[in-house]
Write a protein that binds this DNA or RNA. Structure first.
Lengths: 140, 140
DNA sequence: CTCCGTGCAAATGGTTTGCATCTTA
DNA sequence: TAAGATGCAAACCATTTGCACGGAG
């Protein structure tokens, strides 16, 4: 979910979070990324502009974004967490071999999923839909 | 997926795994459990009959069951893995507060899910469908 | 008799915590 | 100037690994 710095700053301030250059950089990167990056990956990106940034700050900022409902954390076996800034209903297509994650989103899927929810008769506060595949590259 | 000892023994032998009392006990417990237990939980159950059993053996046996396709591992933020012996398409209804997991399975859901897969045009090797809720107890 | 499984202890590694220092509001 | 954020180092803890012994085939 990409947004302007002004929008972002309002959201942080409204929730009582202070605005720092590190936070802006991390948020901008994570919220516009389609890669479902790991903390390590985010760090290696942000360190280019903020050479002293610590992994700790990445984790704390992720906690903030999760608290704000702007990011979802996905844990997997045998690898670090991935952070997903797509907060609408969507399917994560995940390659079993290379761990690449691709989002799939459509009106049809939202419709079918809402029917599944209706059948279960629950009030969801969130969801995670993973499909495990072998991506085209790994299939070779 | 409950099965007889004989069925289980065949499956293990056919795949080159040796049959031990510990393995049988762990498999019987996990494959019949509806609780999506943690390794710690499994250990505390098996230790009643096998007082010397180690956590290590639990983890290794889980690896074996995953390899055999009889169990799926589910990782979460801030807690240990849960092992799910329901290998058919189903939805995990997970309480955000107490981490209780309840399976939901029906013909309707399998049908709707297969339509979602058709729309995405992928060949899945597995899936994980989580819905996060507040369970009735935690809602109070 | 050989190989694999077990249990113990130690290592691993992603994540969290404690704390002194710096920044934001 | 008070509350909160940052960066460093140390702690944590679920999981994994190394290894000597024991049991399965």
């Amino acid at each position: 979910m990409t947004m302007t710095d002004d929008q972002l700053i309002s959201i942080l301030r409204d929730s009582g979070y202070k605005v720092t250059p590190q936070r802006l950089a991390i948020c901008n990167y994570v919220l516009s990324s389609k890669e479902h990056p790991t903390a390590e990956h985010i760090h290696s990106e942000i360190v280019k502009k903020h050479p002293a940034i610590s992994l700790n700050t990445i984790y704390q900022t992720m906690d903030m974004l999760i608290d704000l409902g702007l990011v979802q954390e996905m844990r997997f076996s045998g690898s670090s967490s991935r952070f997903d800034s797509n907060t609408s209903v969507h399917v994560n297509i995940i390659c079993q071999k290379c761990s690449k994650i691709q989002d799939f989103e459509s009106e049809g899927i939202r419709e079918l999923w809402s029917r599944i929810l209706a059948e279960m008769n629950v009030e969801p506060v969130g969801q995670r839909l993973d499909v495990y595949v072998l991506c085209d590259e790994c299939k070779r």
